[in-house]
Structures are given as structure tokens and as C-alpha cells.
Design a protein around this nucleic acid. Sequence first.
DNA 1: TTGAAAGCGCTAACAC
DNA 2: GTGTTAGCGCTTTCAA
Lengths: 334, 334
Amino acid sequence: MSRPRPRLKEIAEATGFSVNTVSLALRASDRIPEKTRDLIMQEAERQNYFPNQIARSLTKRATHTIGLVLTDIMNPTITLTARSIERLLANAGYGVMFATSDNSLENEKKAMARFQSHQVDGIIVYPTNRSKIRHIQAARDAGFPVLALADLPDSGLDVVAMDDRVGAETAVMHLIARGHKNIVLLDGAFGSGNTEKFDGAQNALKRAKNGPASIAVVDPKGNSSAHGYAVAATILKQTPRPTAVYATTDALAIGVARWCLENEVSIPEDLAIVGCDNSEVSEFGSTPLTTINYASDEVSQKAVERIIALIESETRLAPKTLLFEPRIVVRKSS
Amino acid sequence: MSRPRPRLKEIAEATGFSVNTVSLALRASDRIPEKTRDLIMQEAERQNYFPNQIARSLTKRATHTIGLVLTDIMNPTITLTARSIERLLANAGYGVMFATSDNSLENEKKAMARFQSHQVDGIIVYPTNRSKIRHIQAARDAGFPVLALADLPDSGLDVVAMDDRVGAETAVMHLIARGHKNIVLLDGAFGSGNTEKFDGAQNALKRAKNGPASIAVVDPKGNSSAHGYAVAATILKQTPRPTAVYATTDALAIGVARWCLENEVSIPEDLAIVGCDNSEVSEFGSTPLTTINYASDEVSQKAVERIIALIESETRLAPKTLLFEPRIVVRKSS
DNA sequence: TTGAAAGCGCTAACAC
DNA sequence: GTGTTAGCGCTTTCAA
């Protein structure tokens, strides 16, 4: 339905030069004298010419587009990362295609396949399940630039991420230092094979001299505040009664906090809460939340640098893992 | 750096058929007998063949990709809309390229130009400034399918959006009904030409029998909770002292609420607050917020339907405006 | 300094 | 039933 857009051919005909000369001129080749170039550029402007990137991509075998596969863009930390990545890539001249897997492995695979069909130059993926990454490795093995935004040790993949293990360890150490003996890990991803936060918590138990022997894991079946609110009663029913919760997202933590507020469980006296990500809601939610910082800017910056390096490198680069150590932000909930 | 991916040619050579036959077979043409087709499909699978969408796009003159230009993806309502749109489009076989303008007109124009260069089949745009839409109209005039996610009356553009005018009117009517005489509109977009919320508020004043004569506008210089928190003191310093605020995002409202909490201004007795969007934070933030609902699912659904209709129509469609009437969600802040 | 020709991987029109 | 040819809009040799 759209009026055909001008091509090099139209400009060539209007100026009397060949398509080739026009192409060269528009790309400011020094093979073309300034005079000719100006003439051609003027005509291009007059016709409101924009190069057809699809045609260009076909010859160059590069689309200058990267694919971004995220789990759940409603998590503000992931949103922020997506935004930063998009901006940095736009500045570097890359477009971004994006997809959300909604934590379904099938969706993640489909999105990656779609992106590869669309000939993206590389893919940045926040994997749904850290133990199901064969399709990501397969892409890399085929020589395709891929970067994972999650800590995947010994996966042979390039990784830029927060060190969740250390984050969880820090959170639990903090709670132990405050004297807590009955700590719940509120973690929806544990059941689906993402054990690094659990592992970090275990490390804290081992390191602490007088900490608890074990930690209970509760699955909120989702990551929103509503899920946290819904599961709060279950947490407090555990025996012995927990005195502290480490929730793997701030939203979950805020949901628990709201339930406590409404049910006369005081925070942090009756229940201490630590969230994760240091999102805006942790500061402005029902209770100012102690939380584990997610260095979104650093992660985005390094991820973009790395994927571009992978794309532009002539040779295959050895995989590199870059993990940031999160710090704890102590507020009123612990 | 990547090993060349298999093309139709490789499959053709392996099976002894021509490239054309292979192409037809893989697209399940009934011109090819089942036996041949199976043979070819098997070989394609064996070689792990995926069609090169770039090449296909070049011949078909369609990329099956749409561009999504948003202002600020950190606004959870916009995030949610982006997610829904991406999913609906993925289901319809379309990929999504996205960009955030960060409320800069320049960025918005650049993103649209980039998308058009990438030959997206259509663009969905949440415009930064409702009075600066010439570039959007230009795209439409050139026959390019465009859809705006904001109420742009008489723009000649296709529109799917919430009716912000009615939303603001509802919010202010609600406050007037509660007896408020000094109402502040906390609106960062007003200064940059987006007056529909202000207009809606004015309508409410006109319609109310015993309401205030005017409404003060305060610019928070941003849309986050931090901005709301920072501007709260300024609001309360106005004379006569305001008794109610209508904030144009929930995040702003929550920021104001948090400041009140910390400065012994009780809500809603000393200050009533109404937010906008009914995002999760309105329910779980420092104070459960009265707010104006944003029907993200409906907007996304209709937007996707419409952009696909525009793309697939043989003829140019007359522009259509679809506005949803928001409803008010009354909680504890008013 | 400029142009002609080939080719990127695919699809479509037309033969055979 | 299957193959040949041309062409999508651009870039890249290679010639002139």
C-alpha cells in the first residue's frame, strides 16, 4: 500500500550518474570529487532518500541489529537493563529486536531461532533456566555471537552479570549478623533449576559461626508484589516461625511487607525482610527495604561492549565471564 | 567470524533438486509431491537450515518486523504495554524492534528514521510531544503504516489510546466530590505541550457546581518517585495550601506520599492524592493509591490488530481513533 | 573519475 | 513435477 521509496536508481537517473557512483557518493567515498558528491547528496535529500538496510544487509552479511531475549520485562531491573542496552547499542549504530520469554524455555528457543532467521548480528539473552542452555551453547558453537546476562559458570559462554551467589550470601550474612536463626529464602526460580541464590545462602550458613543450620525455601509461584502478598501467610506459618525473609525480587519483598503491615506483624521486629535488585519500589514501597543492589548500568555497559567485540572480531574469541559483586543497601526492613 | 549458514543451494546440491524446488518444498507448496518434499525437508533438518529472512524480505518487500518507539520504558504501564504488544505481534508472526526516545523529540525522529531504513512494515509510536507530530504524519503521508498510542485528535493519524482527558476529568471530579477546593495537578508533560490532562481537569472544574475556579500546575521535572518526593515540599508551600494532588503517574504520587509519611502530613486528611495508571506500585506502595486505570491489555490488543490491518490492507485505510474510557480505582489515598 | 557486471539468498514468472 | 531466468536494492570487484 505504500508509495515505493526512492532507490539509488532514482537518484542516478535524476543526476545522470550511474547507480554505482551514487552509492559511492552517498557513502562519502573519496573516489568521488566533492562537486559530484554534493550534487548527488542534494538530489538524495530532495527525494528524501534513505538507504534500504535490508538490501545493504544482504550484501554485507550484517544487519547491524542485535536480538535481546529477556525473561520478564516487568521486573524493573530487567526493564532498566533493556533500556540501557538499547541506548548504548543505538549509539553504537545497532538496532535492537526484543522478545520476552516469560520464563518459558520454549519461548526463549523460539525467540532465538526467530532472531537468527532475521540474521541479527548477535544475541544477548537473559536465560530462563540456568541448567537448560544447550540451545545457547549450540548458537555459540555455530560461531554465532551470544552473550548471557546470567552467571553460567563453565558453560563456555560469554557472561556479564551480577554475582547472585555472592548477593545471596551477603543478604543472609547480614540477617545472621542481626541474630536471625530462622530464615526463609523466598525464591520462585529455585524450583526450575536456578540454584545460585540458594547456594549463596548455604555459603553464608557455612561461613557464619553461630548461624542456623539450614534455610527453608518457599516458592511464591511468581515474582510480583501480589505473589509476595499471597504467600506471606504461608511463610509465617512455617515452624519454627521464621524471623527473616530474603526475597529474590524487591516486588516480592514489598508484597510480604504489605501483608505484614495489614496483619500487625511489625517489620523488622517480628519479621526482617531483605529484597533484591534495589529497584525504585524498594525505596518507596510500603516499607523502605534493605536490598541487594543490581548494577544495571555496569552490566549493560559491559554487555554491549562485549557483544560488539564478539561481532566485530575477525577471529573467534575465548569466552569471558564478567561478574559484578553486588553490595547491600540497608534500609528499615531489617 | 561465523561459519557460513546453509542456504537453499546447499540443500539443493545434497538432494539433487534445484534451488527453486527446494524453496517450494520447504514452503510446503502443493506443486511438490509429498515424497520429494519429505526428502528435502529431511535434508534441511539435517543441515539445520533456517531461511534467511533478510533475503526473503528483499524479494517480498516486507520484513515482518514492526518498530516500537516508546518514551520511557521505565514507566511500568508503558513496560506492560510493550510486553503485550511484543507477545501479540510474535504470535502474529512479527518481530519487534524497539527504541526509547527518553522524551526527546530528536531521539524519536532518529528512531523512526532508523526503523524506516530497516524497512519495518509499520511503526507503533508513543509520541513524546503531542503537538510535534509532523514527522509521524509525514511517514503516514508517504503511505507508511503508523499508529500512535496517544490521543491525537484531528491529526489524521491512527490512534489507540486511553482517553487522558476523561481520565483527568474523572480524577478531579472525584476530588471535588470529596470537597477539595485547592487541587494541584502534578504534571511533567504539561510544559512540553501535552495539555490533555490539564484540559480534562478544566472540564471537571466547569462541570462541578461548587468546585474550585482553577487548578495549579506543578512540574516535577521527571516522572519517578524520587521526583515526586523531591517536589512534595514545593506543592505544600503553595498558597492557599493545597488539600489534594492529582499526579500524572503513580510513581510521582507514591513519591509525594512517602514525603508526607515522613513529614507528618496525613493522607488523605491533610492531603489527598490520586495517581494515574493503576500500576502495581499504586497497590503496594507506601500508601495504597487511588488511581486512574490504564487498560494496557485492551490498548495493546487493539493497537496490534490495527497496525496489522494497516500493513495488510491493499488500499489505504482512513485513519481511525480508538479511545478507551479509563475508570477510577479508589483506595486509601483520597 | 566513472561505469558495467556480478553477486548477496531468496521468490516468482514462465518454460519444459 | 521440476528447472531456468530474472530480479529485489545494494555493494564490490574490475574495467575503462
